[in-house]
Structure formats: structure tokens, C-alpha cells
Amino acid sequence: MDTLDPSLIGHASALERVARALNVPVAGFLSERPAYDANDLLALLRLWSEIKDDQGRNRVLEIARQAAGRGGYKACA
């Protein structure tokens, strides 16, 4: 199933940017059995878009960087 979910059509360029940042193909987001929970990723992206202030976004980024660092991710910029 490599078709774009209709709810994502307006967000295709954002999806492409996310895929590049994660170094994964866009098709990985569209497969029926992703290696991650796509619903959680979509929820995170939707929540992120609702955070309007820089302080809130910075707090979320810091938490994400810490969690990624505990998982061994080193390129947290």
C-alpha cells in the first residue's frame, strides 16, 4: 500500500522533510507494517504543530534529545 493517506495530502512536503531528517524513505511511512508505530509519529507531529510558543517547542525538543541520547543517538543538534 504505497498510496498517501488522504488526510496527509496537504502535508506531503512536511512528510518528505521528516523522512529526510530521519534518513528513511517516505515509503516507510506509507507501508502497511511500519517498523515503528506510525500512529504515535503522526500524533507527535500533530501535537508539535499545536505548540505555538518557542519555549514549549524547546522543552519538547530537549525531552526528545534526552530520550534519543539514552537510545544511543549522537547527532542531536
Rank of each mutant, 00 (worst) to 15 (best):
A38L: 12
N39G: 14
E32P: 10
R17S: 14
A19H: 00
G28A: 05
M1W: 04
A19P: 00
D37W: 11
I9M: 08
D53A: 07
A21I: 03
S7G: 13
Y73T: 14
I63L: 08
G71V: 14
V24L: 00
L8K: 03
A12L: 10
Q66S: 13
I9G: 04
I51D: 00
A77N: 13
F29W: 03
Y36H: 11
L30W: 06
D2I: 14
G10A: 10
I63G: 03
A21V: 01
I51K: 04
A77R: 07
T3S: 09
M1L: 02
R65V: 07
R46L: 08
P34A: 11
L45R: 02
G10M: 05
T3Q: 10
R20N: 12
S31F: 02
R20E: 12
L30D: 06
G10E: 10
I9Q: 13
I63Q: 13
L22W: 03
S31N: 06
D37Q: 08
D53M: 11
A75V: 14
F29V: 00
L47R: 11
D37P: 02
L15M: 12
G72D: 00
A67L: 07
A75R: 13
A21G: 09
L4N: 01
D54C: 06
I51P: 03
R59F: 05
T3V: 14
L45P: 01
L42R: 11
A67C: 07
L44V: 11
L4F: 03
A67I: 12
P6W: 11
P25E: 00
A64E: 07
Y73A: 14
A68M: 15
A38P: 01
R46C: 09
N58W: 14
V26D: 00
G71Q: 12
D37R: 10
A21R: 13
L4W: 01
S7I: 10
V18R: 00
A43Y: 09
G28T: 03
E32H: 05
